[in-house]
Structures are given as structure tokens and as C-alpha cells.
Design a protein around this nucleic acid. Structure first.
Lengths: 120, 120
DNA sequence: TTGACACATTCCGATATAGGCATATGATGG
DNA sequence: CCATCATATGCCTATATCGGAATGTGTCAA
């Protein structure tokens, strides 16, 4: 297998940089495919494929508007991602500043090898 | 190509469910590889590989402790992810509740086809 | 030094993905 | 109906990834 279990969820969808860019663009409102492709410097099929992934995981909606198809953001699927990552917030805001990093390094140096070159 | 450009960043690292589980476990403190493998029901090489990815993107640190190697969480790399996703917060907290969803559907129905069945 | 333990790495096969290109589908206007 | 524009899909190749099994590396104890 090449990407276990749920190969298509929000986490995977936003792992692709171009799809993230698409989502950012869509914050400005719904847009047709060609617009997105042009603004992001990708081909139209590329844009369509990325939009398909985003649609399948529910991060965008489509609406037919004449010949065009307007894609619109549906960010609700990002909420679980935000919450999961938020579960780590205290670990980067609480103790991992400069000082603590220095302490960590000291601790690591001390425990890894107090043999010959520990004065460096 | 199979996953454009930056194939190894925090976004990709957390796209893998098992790696997310590892990170969650490490919130409880540093742990040796075998511990993690056992608790997550995966083989030791599997755990080592996932830990390697996490280490390469800087989400964990390693510390040699005798025969063992203790992996420790370094969640700072998750901050950019949290901030990026947070940029969409207003799109799920502001307007996409039940009522708004209903309005969206009305709007969509109206614009897609105000022909015969628009009274439904 | 040897054996045992903890862990890392490598090789393999299967699968999924992304890009490029060609082509199909769908709606619109004449 | 036909041509055209907008978009979707299919095919192909290259590559990356995951899982599994085997093996390599490093550390400790006797």
C-alpha cells in the first residue's frame, strides 16, 4: 500500500501544497476552474484533479453557472484538523522557547555521553 | 512525481494516521521505540520508519538512553500548520451553521435552475 | 569477546499519486 | 445540429510511499 487506510481525508488533502493554495484562493469567494488554474500557474486538468480531491473530502462545493463550474470553499472539514493540531498548542507555547531549548541541549549532552569531549 | 515539491514537511508528516497516533502518545512524555510499537499495534521497523519521518521534519527528537532510544515530542513544527488552518476559522465558525447551510442550499437551488421545481 | 537486546536500515512488492497530454463530456450560441 | 468554450476524465510514466521480512548496527552484561 502507498498511503495507508484513509487515503482521502482532510489531512491528506491539505498535504499537497497546490491544494492548499487553491483553498486560500477560494477564501476570496467562489471561482471557476480556469481562473484558479491561471492564478496558480497550473494546467486546467491539474486544477480539475485537485479540485476533485478537495470535493471528495468535502472541502469545496461546486455550482454550475452556465458553461462554468464555480468552486466554493467549505472549510468545515478543516475544523477537525485545527482541533487535532490545537491539541499540541501547549507544547509549543509553554516550554519550547530559547531558554528551554538550551536546557534541552544541556540535558541531552549530559545524558548522551559524559566521556571525553563534554567541555565543548 | 508522486507528491510534489516538498515531500517532507509537517503537513505530510501528519497526513499519516499512524504518525498522528505516535505524536499523541508522545504528549505523555518521551518513550522508547518498542513501547510505541506495542501500544500502537505495529511492528518495530514500522515504528522506526515513522519516527524517522517525524524526526526529519523536526516533530520529534531522539535521545540515546543505554540500549534504548527515547523519542520526545517537539511540537513547534505544528505551529505553522495550526496557523494555516486557523486562517480558515471564520469560514466554519461564522457562517456555516445549520441555518446558513439552509440558506446556501436555497441560493444554490435558485441559481442553478429557477424553472419548474423551485417551490420545493 | 560473545550473546542478547533495542533499534535502524535495506530490499522487495503493491499501490497510490502527480504531471503531461489527449480526449470526452457538457452547456451555450448561432 | 454544429462549433465553441469550459471543464472533466482517461491513459501513461515516473516516483514516492507503506508494509513485511530479513539483516545490519550499536549497546550492555558476563
Amino acid at each position: 500500500m502507498a498511503r495507508a487506510a484513509t487515503t482521502s481525508d482532510a489531512f491528506n488533502a491539505i498535504a499537497e501544497p497546490q491544494r492548499r493554495e487553491i483553498l486560500v484562493l477560494l477564501r476570496g469567494g467562489e471561482r471557476p476552474v480556469t481562473d484558479l488554474a491561471r492564478d496558480l500557474g497550473m494546467t486546467q486538468p491539474q486544477a480539475s484533479k485537485h479540485l476533485r480531491v478537495l470535493r471528495e473530502v468535502g472541502l469545496v462545493r461546486v455550482r454550475g453557472a452556465g458553461k462554468q463550474r464555480l468552486y466554493d470553499l467549505d472549510a468545515r472539514g478543516l475544523r477537525p484538523v485545527h482541533e487535532w493540531v490545537g491539541g499540541f498548542e501547549r507544547f509549543w507555547s509553554e516550554s519550547f522557547d530559547r531558554l528551554d531549548e538550551y536546557v534541552q541541549e544541556l540535558k541531552q549532552a549530559r545524558q548522551e555521553g559524559p566521556h571525553d569531549g563534554d567541555d565543548q
